[in-house]
Design a protein around this nucleic acid. Sequence first.
RNA 1: GCGCCUCUAGCUCAACGGCAGAGCAACGGACUCUUAAUCCGCAGGUUUCGGGUUCGAAUCCCGAGGGGCGCACCA
Length: 507
Amino acid sequence: MPEDLAIPSDDDQSQGALDALIAERKRKRDHLGSLGVNPYPSRFDRTASAGELHRDYDGLEADQRTGQIATLAGRVVSLRGHGKLIFITLADQSGTIQLLIQESRRSDRAGQVLEALDLGDWIGTSGEVITSRRGELSLDVDDLQMLSKALRPLPDKWHGLVETDTRYRQREVDLLANAESRRVFDIRFKAIAALRRFMQDDGFVEVETPILQPMAGGAIARPFFTHGNALDIELSLRIAPELYLKRLIVGGYEKVFEIARNFRNEGVDTRHSPEFSALEAYRAFGDFNDGMDLSESMIVAAAEASIGTMTVTVGERSLDLTPPWPRRHLLDWLEAVVGVRLHPSDPVEKVRAICDAHHCEYLEEWTSGKLIFELYDTVLLPLVTDPVFVYGIPIDVSPLARSNDDDPTMADRFELCIDGKEFVNGYSELNIPEVQVERFARESQLAAQGDLEAMPADAAFVRALEYGLPPTSGIGLGIDRLVMLLAGVEAIRDVILFPMLRPESFD
RNA sequence: GCGCCUCUAGCUCAACGGCAGAGCAACGGACUCUUAAUCCGCAGGUUUCGGGUUCGAAUCCCGAGGGGCGCACCA
C-alpha cells in the first residue's frame, strides 16, 4: 500500500491511522536520540542465539539460575508487561527466547529503551540465563539496547499476515510474522543445499551458463525477449540451460550441473511461475538409466536433509518417497490402463480413437507419437501418487533425445512423476549431429505450420556436436515443485520468495 | 485470454439496503512470573477507486484496479 515516506507534521489533523502509528514510533525513536542513545548503532556483538540457549539449557527445572551470562540480539515479537516486571519474546533466526526484565535488576539504559520499545524493534540484550517460576527458559535482563527501530506496526501476533497479495508483495513481513512461511523456505534452502552437496560429492562440477542468450533453446517454451545495448542485439532469457551444458560435455567436463533460473513467457497458475528453478545435470558415458538412478538418489538426499522423512503430506494426500521407485514403460502402462497396445507407428486414427474414449483433446496435425504422449499427460499422470519413473517416450516429442536402439520411434527418455506432476525429465542425449539437424528441421517445419512452441534450430549447438558429444545422460529437475512436495504446499508462489506480480502502485 | 470469487481500521474479521463494529496492535492507567497475560479507560474509517439506482449504499447495478481460484497453454 502506498505510504508517504515524509515525516508527517504533528499538527496535521488529516493524517491517517497508520501515519499516526508511524509518527508515534518515530517520536519514541527520536526521544531515545535526545537521551543520547543511538537508536541505530553500527554493530552489536552477541555471545549466543536463542536456539543455542535452548540446546544448552532446555530441561532445567523451574526457577533455576545458571550463573551464565548471555548476550543476544533479535526482534521483539511479543511484549507482556506487569508493571515492574516485563516479559518479552525475542526472535532471532534460530528461534525465540523469553526475556524477563525486572525493574530492580535492569540498567538505567534498559529502562530508557523499554520506554521507547515497540513490537517489531530489533534489540540487543544481556543477562543471566534462568528459568522462570513457570519453568520457561529466560534471560534475566540487565542490559537492553535498541539496535533498530521498527516504524511500522507488525501484523496481528496471533493471526499473522493472511492476505496472499500482501504476503507475496511484502515477503519480509510474511516471514517475520508467519512461522509457516519460514518453515517452507527453510525446507527450500535446506533442500537446495542438499542437492548441491549431493552433486558435488558425486563429482559433478557446478557451472554457470548464459541467462541472456541470442536464441533460447533446449526446451519447448515461449521466451522473454530483451535488448542488449552494447551489441545492439535482441536477446532472450533462457528457457533451459541444456544446450550449453552439453557443449561443456563436448569440451571435456564429464559431470556438470547447474542450478538454473529459467524464464518462460507463459501462463501463471499454482504449478507454473514465469521464473522458476531447475537443476540440470549431464554425465558423460551414461544413459537414461543412470539418469533415473541419479534422480532418485538426489531427491531422497534432499528429502532427508530438509524434512528428515520419506513421508510427505500434500493436502489430503499422503505420499511415500521411500526408494526404490518403480520404472514403467510408457507403452506398457498405457496398455494396462486403456486396454489397447499403442505405438507411434500406429495409424493416427487408431490412437485418436483412444484419445476420444478418454477425453483427451488433440489437434489435427498431431502424430501418433504426440497423441500417445498426450494420453500419458492426461490419462496416466493424474493416476500417479507415489514416485514412478515412466520411460520410453515417443521421439516426436523428444527432439534432443537419443532414439532407442531397437525402436527408433521411441526415445530413451524418462519422466519422474509424483503426485500427478512431472518432477524430472531425463534422457540419453542425442549426439549424432546429422540426426540433430533433422530433428531441428522437423521442428522448423512445425513452426512454419504455426506451432509457436516448436524448438528453434541452434547451429552453434550442432557445430558443438560435430566435435563429438560422448554418450551422455542428462536430467532436469524442477526445484520449485520438489520444494512444494517436501513442504506440502500446493501453490508454487508459496515456495518462491518474491513471485512475479503486477507492480505495486505507490501513487 | 475466458469464467467464478474477493477487497471494510496497521493486522485478523463482523455488519449484507437503515447510526460502520469487535479482537489484536496503538495511546493513558493498574499490576514482579507472564507466555494469544489480565483489568480499567481512550482513540482509530474516503468500507480499493469512479459512476449509477435509492428517501437512504460497505451492502444492489455498471465500469476500472489489485489479488485468488478454475479452464485453456506450459514444467
